Amino acid sequence: MAQRLKEAHRQANALPESVRIPVIRKLLMVTERAKRDPVQASERLDRMLVELATTAKEAPTR
């Protein structure tokens, strides 16, 4: 899961600031959730990675 979180942060950092900041906040919430419920955090991270892939295609990079 740590590797997937790193990948998600890498993808988020390539987004424009207006999109990047909310995405990073969500990633931080997933990280916090992983401390208490790793299964739920993993599921949430999977959904976020799909969203990031879609967002990256739609948003111009910085």
Rank of each mutant, 00 (worst) to 15 (best):
E17A: 11
K35I: 09
L28P: 04
R44S: 15
P22A: 05
L45E: 05
M48F: 01
R47F: 13
R47I: 06
P22T: 00
M48C: 04
P60L: 09
Q3S: 12
H9Y: 08
A59T: 02
E7M: 10
L45Y: 02
A56S: 07
M48Q: 01
A34Q: 06
Q3I: 14
L52D: 04
M29S: 13
L49E: 08
L15T: 02
R44M: 15
A2I: 14
S18D: 14
K35N: 11
R47A: 05
A2H: 15
P22Q: 03
H9A: 08
R36M: 12
L52S: 01
I24V: 07
A14Y: 09
A2E: 15
A53K: 07
A8D: 00
T31F: 14
P16W: 06
R4Q: 06
E51T: 08
K57E: 08
T55P: 00
S42I: 07
I24W: 08
V30R: 00
A56M: 06
K57W: 02
L15C: 02
V50C: 11
L27V: 06
R36E: 13
R33A: 14
M1V: 09
N13P: 05
R47G: 05
V39A: 14
K6Y: 10
L49D: 03
I24P: 01
V23E: 02
Q3P: 03
N13G: 13
P38T: 03
R44C: 14
R4V: 04
R62S: 08
E51I: 10
V19Q: 06
N13H: 11
Q3C: 14
Q11G: 05
P16E: 04
R4M: 08
A8L: 03
T61N: 13
R44H: 12
L28S: 13
D46V: 14
V19S: 05
R47V: 04
L15S: 01
A8F: 00
M48R: 00
R10F: 15
A56P: 00
V39E: 12
I24H: 05
P16Y: 03
R62C: 06
V23S: 02
R20V: 09
L15A: 06
A56G: 00
A53T: 13
L27W: 00
P60F: 10
A53Y: 05
P16G: 04
T61H: 10
K26F: 09
E51Q: 12
A41F: 02
K6H: 13
